[in-house]
């Protein structure tokens, strides 16, 4: 009793919550404020300043110069290619992630943990190596390159290669979010649905999907951010053909290397906005997931 007193604080969602302040396990005020000060300074200098720099450099020569950067047809082509790449890679990995999570989380079979490790592999492969392995498959000295070239199909230094490399680097995101969640949720609700006469699809759509929708969205947000921002892997397979095989990050590189800083930072500012949107959405989804977890815990608690 002497060690704990109840203080009252309002949490962000408007509800109130009681927090126990533990005197014994809290640092002295000076130590606490020192730590907070170090953290705030470190994070702002280290993280916020670069972000601010992107916008400052982009607007260095005024709004007119900034907007002019987007009148360049090559910039527009880069934006289009980036959107196209994400629009193919994200849904492809979404379908894969759901399928993988379903068989891994809802069934017991041999070799499951090996499968989980294999799914994680792309995270362990560096971006440049990720691009390189597709070169080895589809490049002119690769396994399938010459065969495909005879038939007029170009993968490397063309859009298919960019899409494939992007799929590779964003491969595990959705599956990684879903597998632990679905494993934790177990199969009781699905069994109940099946025993109540629901078909496989009905079970998935009406019971499983509502339970995993936030995690699914979370995975999609993360893989979209990576898909639109990937640089190393795409750089290897793209060939940097202006207006054709340049994604936004590659276009930034070209402009920067030509000392066209305003244009480079202008395109970069769009990517920075994408990053900010990603952070906001991610935080909102995290709150939702937190809420869902709390509710699930309450539901499981014995009354």
């Amino acid at each position: 009793m002497g060690t704990a007193s109840l203080s009252h604080e309002a949490s962000a969602d408007g509800a109130t919550a009681f927090r126990v302040t533990r005197v014994v396990t809290d640092e002295r005020p000076w130590a606490r404020w020192l730590l907070i000060g170090v953290t705030v300074t470190f994070l702002s200098l280290f993280l916020v300043v670069p972000l601010a720099a992107v916008f400052a450099e982009a607007f260095r020569k005024g709004l007119g110069a900034y907007l002019a950067s987007f009148r360049d047809p090559n910039a527009l082509a880069a934006i289009r290619l980036t959107l196209l790449t994400a629009a193919i890679a994200v849904p492809a990995n979404l379908v894969f992630g759901v399928a993988a999570a379903w068989c891994i989380a809802k069934f017991e079979f041999r070799g499951k943990s090996l499968l989980i490790s294999l799914i994680d592999i792309p995270f362990a492969v560096s971006p440049v190596v990720s691009g390189l392995i597709y070169m080895l498959l589809f490049g002119m000295q690769g396994w399938f390159g010459p065969w495909l070239a005879e038939r007029g199909i170009q993968v490397i230094f063309a859009v298919p290669g960019i899409v494939l490399a992007t799929i590779f680097v964003t491969f595990p995101f959705v599956a990684r979010e879903l597998i632990p969640l679905m494993q934790e949720q177990g199969t009781e609700e699905e069994q109940a649905a099946v025993s109540l006469g629901a078909s496989g699809w009905q079970t998935f759509r009406r019971v499983t999907l509502p339970n995993i929708k936030w995690a699914l969205l979370y995975g999609v947000i993360l893989s979209n951010a990576r898909a639109m921002g990937e640089f190393g892997a795409v750089s290897v397979v793209s060939g940097h053909i202006r207006g054709k095989t340049n994604t936004m990050p590659l276009h930034v590189e070209i402009l920067y290397n030509e000392y066209n800083f305003v244009a480079a930072f202008a395109v970069a500012s769009l990517l920075a906005l994408l990053a900010l949107a990603t952070l906001v959405l991610k935080t909102l989804v995290e709150w939702q997931m937190q809420r869902q977890v709390t509710e699930a815990l309450e539901l499981r608690e014995e009354t």
């Binding site: 705030v40 639109m228 990050p249 480079a264 994408l274 900010l276 906001v280 991610k282």
Partner: peptide, 20 residues
């Protein structure tokens, strides 16, 4: 601050590179 910690992850690496 908690949300900003993920910035290096969300920011495309090329953008971080030129900004730094």
């Amino acid at each position: 601050l908690d949300a900003i910690v993920d910035l290096p992850f969300a920011l495309p690496t090329a953008v971080s590179g030129i900004a730094l």
